[in-house]
Simulated assay, not measured.
Amino acid sequence: MKSFVRAGALGLTLALAAAPAAFSQAPPPAADSMFRATTLNLSAYGETKVAPDMATINLGVVTEAPTAAAALSANTEKMNQVMAALRRAGIAERDIQTSGLNIHVQYDYLPNEPPRLRGYQATNQVTVTVNDLSRLGRAVDATVQAGANSVNGISFGLKDPAAAENAAREEAVKALAAKAELYARATGHRVARMVSLSEGGGYAPPPPMPMMAYARAEKADMMATPVSPGEMRVRIDVTGLYELAR
């Protein structure tokens, strides 16, 4: 007979030693000893907070014209100005990547009438990596003044998340060990050894925060757009199997 004690989301499994069931073929010694042992299967997580040191913004130019060629030509002219503004703002060429180039037909829809062709819309989007956050606000402003009329989102990240991940790992293992000790005492046991440890989760850049698309600024002396990077949370999840003893 086997009995179990479960604790919901804590992932606790307390398997008490018992006589093995009858098998037509004896299980391997390792598996047999596992079923005879009293074990805890627990999960925990560790989390650390760190200031981001980079950002990614998605911006571009949207133009409309009676013909596709005219829309694309106007878009190309403005986009070249935007790219030049980014370089003047200190953004390296390798940190500017085209992420979307599209031409769409534009129609006017009126009641009880067939759609009327209004013209064509050209869209050119670039993804910009900013490795110096002190340049971020001014880089956005410079591109808007140069002709960018679409700023779709911004996300912050880490150039090297290893240190933050390792700090979270240490916190996760400490939390897991403390939880094992607590359940061992509560059930009248002691922790004999850790049998296995597995990891899940890890650093993942947060999704872009939406920014309202806005048209070209008319004033050249506009103040730098305030951008606050705040803090990021890096989380590591771990699961461990512990063997208990009396």
Rank of each mutant, 00 (worst) to 15 (best):
L42S: 07
S43M: 15
S43W: 15
A44T: 15
Y45N: 12
A51P: 07
P52S: 10
M54R: 09
M54C: 06
A55L: 12
I57L: 12
L59S: 02
G60Y: 03
G60A: 05
V61G: 01
T63Q: 15
E64M: 15
A68W: 01
A68E: 13
A71T: 09
S73L: 06
S73E: 11
S73I: 09
S73T: 09
K78D: 10
M79T: 03
V82P: 02
V82Y: 03
M83Q: 12
L86Q: 04
R88I: 11
A89Q: 07
G90P: 07
D95K: 00
D95L: 00
D95T: 00
Q97P: 00
T98F: 01
G100D: 12
V105F: 01
Y107E: 09
Y107C: 05
D108K: 12
D108L: 09
D108T: 13
L110I: 11
P111T: 05
P111C: 04
E113Q: 14
P115A: 12
P115W: 07
R116C: 05
R116H: 10
L117Y: 03
R118G: 04
Y120Q: 01
A122R: 00
A122P: 03
T123S: 13
N124Y: 10
N124W: 09
Q125T: 08
Q125H: 05
T129W: 06
N131Q: 03
D132Y: 00
L133T: 07
L133K: 04
S134R: 11
L136D: 08
G137W: 07
